[in-house]
Design a binder for these strands. Structure first.
Lengths: 240, 240
DNA sequence: GCCGATTTGTCCGTATGTATC
DNA sequence: CGATACATACGGACAAATCGG
């Protein structure tokens, strides 16, 4: 999809890191080398490297070179849930067959309580959706969504049962850009225990998120309760 | 600390966003405006904006402007645990008095089992440390660390009881740069139940992380078990 | 310890493309 | 259609850190 030059370079370098051409612990060719091999300007090469560094693939070292940090997955951690990944993307990456059942689909007007909890504005016309998510027919997540109705015209329960993100991006041509999230561990509530088989667990992973579209409007608040066996969040951070 | 021009601009813009000069939902002055007010080149201004966008403060919109996404913290979420934050930084930001008790401090040689679990290399000389972390004298975290001995000369139990990161950064002049982390929810083990007052919870938040120093060497693996009441992880993600 | 070569980090000025209004 | 605003790319310059002789 992306046709930007710096992104082509990034993809190529990433592929070579993953396939072992540039193994863990080694140094990448210097910037000037990459400039001559790729034939693009140093700024463009540097931008590609910068993205790779942000994603944790490499680490640049002043005066020395760029070290490869990436290594094949350590093993057990099956779930990635990296960056901004939807339920369906997550399932696909991990070899599960995903399905969804819509339990609630209703219009509500945002009052003070909802506003405080979700970050929507009082008076907004919202669509409240509750969904149960299955991996291979086993209930694993319960989603409570509040969508900004004006931002998602034509939303139906059927769309909620497949992928709202897909609808929003492909049908409405809107790109989800930024998402703020928080993660906590909380006691499973009545709903969790009724719907999911909690086994010996009495807790769930709770992920709350606000999503902003390409216009900078917050169009969604989600609270997801995940079964501990189906939750693994991965992340890479850099320090200034 | 940072004297780079783009970072000064970033700090200034961030401050104006936080203090309400550029409120939530508004548009920042255009790049050309910022160029003339700050007196720096467009590249430099754009770099500052780019960092702010990565951190979730703003969202640039092609052809329109740069929208402010930041808003004062929504409320309850007391804990930030944002980005790369050490235990002490976390405690300070949240008004707790932190303390630490070192339970284990021993040299071990990395065998196959430890290597598979931590990502260290077989044969490495490691320092295995187990620490209990307190907020206001209440045990809230249990840390299992494996430090690469050769990367942290002079490490003592006393240093472990205060801040290893502080020692590493200030005394050794080494900067922690990249960290890869994963978060899961797991059943509290015997150790958790013995040391922490789990109340009605039977789960803990488990955070595993590998830290790389400025030479691109992995010098630490940590597994932290956190009490649910003392764990809140916040994050902002962007989509390509 | 010094010096020069190498490599990454920062910054500037300019040009062109694309999206919005 | 033109004006505005962000996105991408190029080329050049100098600084800072590292390394080898």
């Amino acid at each position: 999809m992306p046709k930007a030059v710096f992104d082509l370079v990034r993809q190529d370098l990433e592929a070579r890191i993953v396939d072992g051409t540039y193994p863990y612990g080694s140094l990448l060719p210097s910037e000037s080398m990459l400039v001559s091999t790729y034939g693009y300007s140093r700024n463009t090469i540097r931008r590609a490297l910068s993205v790779l560094a942000d994603e944790g693939y490499v680490q640049p070292m002043n005066g020395r070179g760029v070290r490869v940090l990436w290594q094949p997955v350590a093993g057990r951690a099956q779930g990635t849930m990296v960056g901004l990944e939807s339920f369906e993307e997550y399932a696909r990456h991990n070899g599960f067959v995903p399905s969804t059942k819509v339990k609630v689909f209703e219009h509500v007007t945002c009052d003070q309580t909802i506003a405080a909890r979700t970050g929507h504005l009082v008076g907004d016309d919202l669509i409240h959706v509750v969904r149960v998510r299955y991996f291979d027919d086993t209930p694993r997540q319960i989603d409570h969504n509040y969508f900004l109705a004006s931002a998602i015209p034509g939303l139906t329960p059927e769309i909620c049962a497949s992928s709202v993100y897909g609808y929003v991006e492909q049908e409405l041509g809107m790109r989800i850009v930024t998402s703020k999230r928080s993660m906590t561990v909380e006691l499973a509530d009545e709903e969790d225990r009724t719907i999911m088989d909690m086994g010996s667990y009495n807790c769930v992973a709770v992920l709350r998120s606000q999503s902003f579209n390409s216009e900078g409007v917050m169009f969604e608040h989600t609270r997801t309760h995940s079964h501990p066996d189906a939750f693994c969040f991965m992340d890479t951070a850099r320090r200034a």
